[in-house]
Amino acid sequence: MNYRLMAYGNILKKDMQNYYLKPPNLSWGIIFPISWTLMFFLRSGSDVDIKAILPGVMALSILFGTTSMLSVTITFERKSRSFERLLLSPISLNLLMLAKTTGAIIFGIINAFIPVLFASFFVDLGGIQWTLLFSGVVLIAVTSTFLGLFIAVSVNEVFEAQTFSNFFRFPMVFLCGLFIPLEQLPRVLRPLSYLFPLTYGADILKFSVNHQASINRIVSFAILLLYAVGLFLVSTHNIKKRWIY
C-alpha cells in the first residue's frame, strides 16, 4: 500500500477511535437531533410537520456536529502537541488535513441521517430525492467541517474554538432559511443570508425532501464547492503561517 494512503487511513482510524466513537460523542449525535425535533414539536403542539422541519434539523445536526468536533479535536491536539507529531511526519500538509477532516465529515453525514431515521417512524418518506439529499448532505458536511477547520486553526484554546464557532453558527440557524424561508426574512438581512454556505445546503435539502427551493440547485452545489475549496485553502495557508512559523 502507498505510504500516503496508509498514513491517511491510520490517522482517520485513530481519530474515529479516539474521538468520534467515544460514548459522549456518539450520544451527542443522537441527543442533538432529538432535542431539535422535540423543540419544534413542543413549540407547535402535536401537529408539527416533521417533513417540513426535517431539512433544517438535518442541516443543523451536520453544522453543530462537524464544527464542534473538529474545532475541539484539532485545538486539543495542538495544545497537547500531538498535532506537532503529525506535522513532522513525511506526509504533505494537504493530505494530513484531509485525513484529519474526513472523520468529521463522516460524523456529520451520520448525524444528518439520525433525524431521517427517527422521522421514518412517524411519516411516509416517499417522494424524497435520495441521491440529491445524500449529495447535499455530503457537501454540507464537507463545507461545515472545513469551516470547523478554519475556526480551529484561527484560535489557540478549546474554549476560544467554541466561542468563535458560535459566532458563525447561531446567525446561520436564523438566517439560512432553515426554519424561516428566505423570502420571509427582512429585506436588509437577506444579503447576509446569501453569504452563509448553509443557505445553499439547506436549500438543496429542502428541495430533496419537500420539492421547495429558492435557489437553482446547480448554483447551490457550485457555491458550496467553492466554499469548501476556499475554506480548505485558507485553513492550510493559516496552518503554514501560524504553526509552521
Binding site: 500500500m1 502507498n2 505510504y3 500516503r4 496508509m6 498514513a7 487511513g9 491510520n10 490517522i11 485513530k14 479516539n18 497537547s80 502537541r81 500531538s82 506537532e84 507529531r85 503529525l86 513532522l88 511526519s89 513525511p90 506526509i91
Partner: peptide
C-alpha cells in the same frame, strides 16, 4: 524527532502509540 515534551496520544496505549507512529512512515 524527540521533542522536549512528550507529544503522544494520552488515551492510546504505549503499544498503540508506537504502531500509529510507524504507520505515518509507511
Amino acid at each position: 524527532i524527540v521533542p522536549d515534551e512528550s507529544n503522544l496520544y494520552d488515551d492510546m496505549s504505549g503499544y498503540e502509540n508506537l504502531v500509529f507512529c510507524a504507520s505515518l512512515y509507511g
